[in-house]
């Protein structure tokens, strides 16, 4: 009994952690490049989920096949999230590139507030039922009591996205340019890298993974509203900081650690204070190990 319960919590934590990882990547990549906490990132994730919901509902009403609906909804959600990420960067962050950090941060908070209320006003403040986009796989039937097909899909997608992302960053020209920009923007510009272009690409890639996370979790939980981006964003941020902000493997590790601790905490201790726990966790990390698990502590240059 207790062993089964442990396994259940472990897998639940793994699923949670995978979702956090997909969102945390966007934070960590953007932070790595322009040292900005993109407050609007949670909203991009929410918009991804909403777009998928809207597209899926419309297509289902036209009576399309479930698989076509799934593919189109995911693709369009990713496209739209990328478009939003790109536009947010152009409007709210690019004009402030030389401004003090406090200004950029306030601008990001404003953007987040705007996007939330935009969805609230244009759509609804109620929770909307999210269609079950991910089917139950037949071949997985025998094992579905351990882990459902949906959870399996979430974990598998996260793994694939991580591998693709690692490949993008380690082995492509764009990835090389991104790493160079993260190290030193002026130097990168001197060797012929279009820094603004690279920053845009970073926002687009981060938004895409957030949108994938949004679709997956919305179809797992089954309902969304305009406010889901806030808590998810905060938790993903906690995960990114836990792993060491700016580091991509760190974001994944931090997300998994946060997913597991949350899952065990709610399973064994109390579910009332789940969110309180995530925040307390953040405070403790920042006090005792501000650079995170994999991060290197930075010395500030004068």
């Amino acid at each position: 009994m207790s062993w089964d319960y442990f396994i259940e919590l472990f897998l639940g934590g793994l699923t949670r952690g995978s979702i956090y990882a997909l969102i945390a990547l966007g934070y960590t990549m953007v932070y790595g490049i322009i040292e900005l906490i993109n407050f609007a990132h949670g909203e991009i994730y929410m918009i991804g989920a909403f777009t998928a919901l809207i597209i899926a509902s419309v297509l289902s009403l036209f009576g399309m096949h479930q698989l076509v609906v799934l593919v189109l909804a995911v693709v369009l959600a990713v496209v739209y999230a990328c478009a939003y990420g790109f536009t947010v960067e152009k409007i709210a962050y690019k004009p402030l590139r030389k401004a003090p950090r406090l200004s950029v941060l306030i601008s990001a908070i404003g953007m987040s507030l705007f996007l939330q209320n935009y969805v609230l006003l244009a759509q609804t403040s109620d929770f909307l039922p999210f269609p079950k986009l991910i089917p139950d796989f037949e071949f997985w039937e025998p094992y579905s009591h351990i882990i459902s097909s949906q959870e399996l899909t979430i974990i598998a997608t996260t793994v694939v996205v991580m591998i693709l992302l690692t490949f993008l960053i380690k082995f492509t020209t764009i990835g090389k340019a991104m790493r160079a920009t993260a190290q030193d923007k002026i130097m990168a510009a001197l060797v012929g890298i279009d820094v603004n272009h690279i920053i845009s690409i970073t926002f687009i890639v981060g938004s895409a993974t957030a949108a994938i996370g949004g679709v997956l979790i919305a179809s797992h939980i089954g309902q969304i509203n305009f406010f889901i981006g806030f808590i998810a964003g905060i938790k993903a941020f906690v995960a990114a900081v836990l792993g060491g902000i700016g580091s991509i493997p760190g974001a994944v590790l931090g997300s998994l650690v946060l997913g597991w601790t949350e899952s065990f905490f709610t399973g064994y201790i109390s579910s009332d204070y789940e969110d309180v726990f995530a925040f307390l966790f953040l405070v403790f990390i920042l006090i005792f190990r501000p650079a995170g698990i994999l991060g290197r502590s930075q010395t500030q240059k004068v």
């Binding site: 601008s107 953007m111 006003l121």
Partner: peptide, 15 residues
């Protein structure tokens, strides 16, 4: 539209 406008104010003022 209050909160929506507040969001816009924050961004526009900063820029």
């Amino acid at each position: 539209y209050r909160m929506l406008v507040f969001g816009v104010i924050l961004v526009v003022m900063m820029i």
